[in-house]
């Protein structure tokens, strides 16, 4: 199926009881929104895609990234980025150090610093590299978390209720930014949410999960 993120005949069960089943392809720059009430296994689906499925679950099917099967690759070798509803910035590192953690290795010190500075500028946070992440506002933290993820050069992006902690005004702004930055990099996006607004803004295919 070529470029993009493919979930091929994915089925996840807990203790033998089927939970989620999905068979979809997400092309570069496309968004697939998975919706449904809490508890139907939306986050479980993402855990399967990132390779962090808890052992209580069993899964069948394949995850293909740009045509390569990554179903059995360890999480850190998959090249699949994820954003959670919490920013999960590392509290012991500065903003710049957080970004450096994400930035793929290689390049001179000066070049790396320049990349980090450019990333901060991209989200209007120029000059924030030395700040303590705990002193940032919610919107600022979300933007740093986004850039940290993008600097690691993932080939797909997952969003796990990524905007649900932000208040309404901020929410639309951060959401537009995430889609814009990810689509500028032609990343396939798999988003789970329970918010209709998120789905509408994504402007892509929507899958409804639920107890049928």
């Amino acid at each position: 199926m070529g470029e993009g993120l493919t979930l091929k005949d994915v089925a996840i069960a807990k203790d033998g009881v089927p939970l989620v089943a999905l068979d979809r392809h997400i092309g570069p720059g496309e968004v697939l929104t998975v919706m449904g009430p809490s508890g139907v296994g939306k986050s479980t689906l993402l855990a399967f895609v990132t390779g962090t499925l808890p052992s209580a679950f069993t899964a069948t099917g394949q995850v293909l990234l740009d045509g390569t099967d990554v179903t059995h690759a360890p999480p850190h070798r998959r090249g699949i980025g994820i954003l959670f509803q919490d920013d999960l910035l590392f509290p012991h590192l500065s903003v710049g150090q957080n970004l450096a953690f994400g930035l793929a290795p290689g390049g001179s010190r000066a070049a790396r610093r320049a990349q980090i500075e450019a990333a901060l500028e991209e989200v209007e946070l120029a000059g924030y590299a030395d700040r303590d992440p705990a002193t940032l506002s919610g919107g600022q933290k979300a933007r740093v978390a986004l850039m940290r993820m993008l600097l690691s050069e993932p080939r797909a992006l997952l969003l796990d209720e990524a905007f649900s902690r932000l208040d309404a005004a901020l929410r639309a702004q951060v959401r537009d930014l995430v889609f814009a930055r990810a689509q500028a990099r032609a990343l396939p996006i798999l988003m789970v949410t329970h918010d209709v607004e998120d789905a509408r803004a994504a402007d892509g295919a929507v899958v409804m999960l639920g107890r049928t």
Binding site: A47, T50, G51, T52, P74, P75, H76, R77, R78, G79, I80, G81, I82, F84, D86, L88, F90, F101, G102, A104, R148, M149, S152, P154
Partner: peptide, 17 residues
């Protein structure tokens, strides 16, 4: 929070790192 480890892994960090 184990999600911290998930995020770090998604950033390409090995379990040891």
């Amino acid at each position: 929070d184990p999600r911290t480890a998930n995020v770090a892994a998604a950033l390409g960090a090995s379990p040891d790192r």
